[in-house]
Design a protein around this nucleic acid. Structure first.
Lengths: 334, 334
DNA sequence: CTGAAAGCGCTAACAC
DNA sequence: GTGTTAGCGCTTTCAG
């Protein structure tokens, strides 16, 4: 193995000069720098990560905790992960993958052994057991998602409240006056990440603001439940012409159910959703939707972490603005 | 930060004794071990990963390269990844996540800097550009999937040939005499991972062995193509009663197409597939299928790597036997 | 702008 | 069964 002393000798300089040439932490004469670079290339030198970590107390590795819980949409998680890795690499960092399974112990382990410099945690519960630990850890962290109390933490996610509002604004702009939100399963509104509640808040607020008649319908993620909600909606609110869906698995079944009941989308009923683009695109009728900007969130999380690692302060709350993509499932009220 | 000398002093032993107590690399008296463990707990000691890596030339980290290519089924990739992480942890290793994007440079980087001890590479092309590098690297690696020439490498995957055979045996056992394989898009048979070819080989061999009349139909992954293949099959092979599908996206569309042409599944036509269970389960008619045993493959890959890291020899080829799950889409020939 | 040298915290001979 | 100690390869004062 070729080491820094080999390079130094070969270039006729001291090891520290090579080190500084590599890190840029002090000025090196053009001439010296070129000689060093040539030697590195010629000898095929790569600094030893462990030695570096030991001497500098920086591993240049980030931990990424990915969720395993049922009900999460896997492709989106993958998008987050890829985006985090890509962004991390741009900051000369690597990414260590942790599963939710290891829980607090895993976080503590990689932090305490100095395996990683910082952590990114996805998929937070409103009252996550890991929060106290994350607050206490000597290493910075960024959370993707929001717990009940973001105090003392750094969180980033799509602004789900604004997403709910934006869906309503879109429908209102098309002239719809009676709308419904078909939401996540009831239990999601109780525990979990709270994003479901925020969608409801945004939906309701925007509906009120625009003078729309609105109603909210939590719904299990089964076709049968979707059918039931569709029937109920038509029965109770015959003037309904707009629906917002925030429940990935039943997007298609719900549309099927409405069509089975004689409503054509979008002729009789406009449908918007908060869901991954791929799902919205692939539906029988491509659905006007707001996607989770996984790439932006991932990159943003890394940027925040880098700022903190650099000693800077990061905002506790970072909300990304939703963007609505108009597709074939919405049109002006008949 | 509390270090090994602190623990040693606190426990009244030498640093090396603490080290050996931790690694188990030499016998420690019961009494001493207890004192050390108590001190570790009391002081909250965690060994510094970098220092460890430097002194032992072992980082206890594995690299996992995940694919990004279009056409791969994301949930399966995630299953692999989770399984690798879980298995690695059981061997006291962590997992560094690399994306395909970095290519050879990424592999070289993490290997040369001694960031990782070994590598797992997913989603190999038949003639993968990374193969020479993997063969030359001073660190062991395991490939999930098979290149054209596995010589000098260690590969593991589902036995796709046996999977093709098993589907046919199942249909033959139900009395079907005329069967077809609806396969992956044509281009997949040319480049890519070669698993598609192996399914065809198994399918054809088993059909011949059982005296069945068989035909193979590559198919684009679009509903339109699926419809076309269905029509063609009915036209050219009116006696057809069994179909094997090896093309995830069109599994449902193909069944729809057959039903649209007046065939009921499974009454008139038995359908089996090679695809993730979730897909097979969720179909309109739950499909008898062979899944990719992602958890087993991931765990197997880690086991092979550990064997190699331990200085042992690992077989070049490890094929996992397919398991067929009977669901509602197959029944005896009418 | 460059060098010398003292560690970083741990492991693994080597000694007993 | 335990202790002593020499590194592992790099970074970073301190000195010039």
């Amino acid at each position: 193995m070729v080491k820094i002393t080999d390079v130094a000798r070969h270039a006729g300089v001291s090891p520290s000069t090579v080190s500084y040439a590599l890190s840029g932490k002090r000025p090196i004469s053009e001439e010296t720098r070129r000689r060093i670079e040539a030697s590195i290339l010629q000898l095929g030198y790569s600094p030893h990560a462990g030695a570096r970590a030991l001497a500098s107390s920086r591993s240049n590795v980030l931990a990424l905790v990915i969720p395993l819980r049922a009900g999460i949409h896997v492709p989106v998680v993958m998008q987050f992960a890829v985006s985090v890795v890509t962004s991390a690499r741009q900051h000369d960092h690597d990414v260590l993958l942790l599963t939710q399974e290891e829980g607090e112990a895993g976080l503590r382990r990689v932090a305490d052994t100095a395996l990683v410099d910082a952590l990114i945690v996805m998929d937070l519960q409103l009252h996550d057991a890991r929060l106290p630990l994350l607050r206490a850890l000597d290493r910075p962290s960024v959370l993707i998602g929001f717990p009940q109390e973001p105090e003392g933490l750094t969180c980033i996610d799509l602004d789900f409240r604004a997403a709910g509002e934006l869906c309503v604004e879109h429908l209102a702009g098309l002239g719809h006056r009676v709308i419904g939100l078909v939401g996540s399963p009831p239990e999601v509104y109780v525990r979990e990440t709270g994003f479901a509640q925020r969608v409801v808040q945004g939906f309701t607020a925007a509906a009120d603001r625009n003078g729309l008649s609105s109603s909210v319908h939590p719904c299990e993620s089964t076709p049968a439940a979707a059918r039931q909600v569709a029937e109920q909606l038509l029965r109770e609110r015959p003037a309904l012409t707009g629906v917002v869906v925030h429940n990935e698995p039943i997007l298609e079944p719900l549309i099927d159910a409405f069509e089975g009941l004689g409503l054509r989308v979008p002729r009789d009923l406009s449908v918007t959703a908060i869901c991954p683009d791929e799902l919205a695109e692939r539906a029988r009728v491509p659905v006007t939707s707001i996607a989770i900007p996984a790439a932006e969130v991932g990159a943003g999380a890394v940027d925040l972490l880098m700022k903190k690692l650099g000693g800077g302060a990061a905002p506790e709350v970072t909300l990304l603005s939703p963007r609505l993509t108009v597709r074939a499932s919405t049109m002006p009220r008949p």
